[in-house]
């Protein structure tokens, strides 16, 4: 493996990881777990870097892999235990605000395909056409997932607010 290829990968990793963290956090709702998923996706990218590095958008490949890992239940709570073992507790700084936590919590209640579509669009700013290509879904399906997802989120957040009001 040549130094140039390593340098390419390192630059790609440094440049993309933070963006990927936001995306995966939106899927998992846990910063440490999101970090673990992102790093795992980059590990897999490096294992296939000979081909992934030549793709027009290696980040798209990593995104798909990270999304699949994040959505997966195969790792279950064990993955959280492993993530904490690998990375320790989150840094002692203010994390996401309660509003953001509530929003991501509501996202996590949506079906995986809808959640991924919303995260790709609203966190990473991908176009409907790009999401369609990345998720291998027709454009109409992507539009429907976005539309229905927004409605479902609004309902979930409204319910959440109502609960808070009832609690006083």
């Amino acid at each position: 493996m040549g130094d140039g290829r390593e340098a390419d990968f390192d630059e790609f990793y440094r440049g993309s990881r933070r963006r990927m963290l936001g995306y995966v956090y939106a899927l998992t709702g846990d910063v440490v777990e999101a970090q673990d998923v992102v790093q795992e996706a980059f590990v897999r990218a490096w294992q296939r870097w000979a081909s992934v590095g030549r793709y027009p958008s290696p980040e798209s490949w990593v995104r798909v892999v990270a999304g699949r890992i994040a959505i997966s239940r195969w790792r279950g709570r064990r993955s959280r235990a492993r993530a904490y073992a690998r990375h320790g507790a989150p840094p002692d700084v203010d994390g996401p605000t309660p509003d953001t936590v509530a929003l991501v919590g509501a996202l996590r209640q949506l079906p995986a395909s809808m959640r991924t579509t919303l995260a790709l669009h609203y966190v990473l700013g991908l176009s409907i056409a790009d999401i369609a290509a990345e998720t291998d879904a027709p454009v109409g399906t992507v539009k429907a997932r976005l539309s229905r997802g927004r409605v479902a989120l609004a309902q979930l957040l409204a319910d959440d607010n109502l609960t808070e009001v009832r609690r006083g």
Binding site: V32, P90, Y122, V123, L157, A158
Partner: peptide, 18 residues
């Protein structure tokens, strides 16, 4: 109440440096 249109900006500002 948070809006999903704000999510990218919120995550950009609020997620800690890991």
């Amino acid at each position: 109440m948070a809006d999903i249109d704000e999510l990218a900006g919120r995550l950009d500002h609020e997620l800690p440096d890991v």
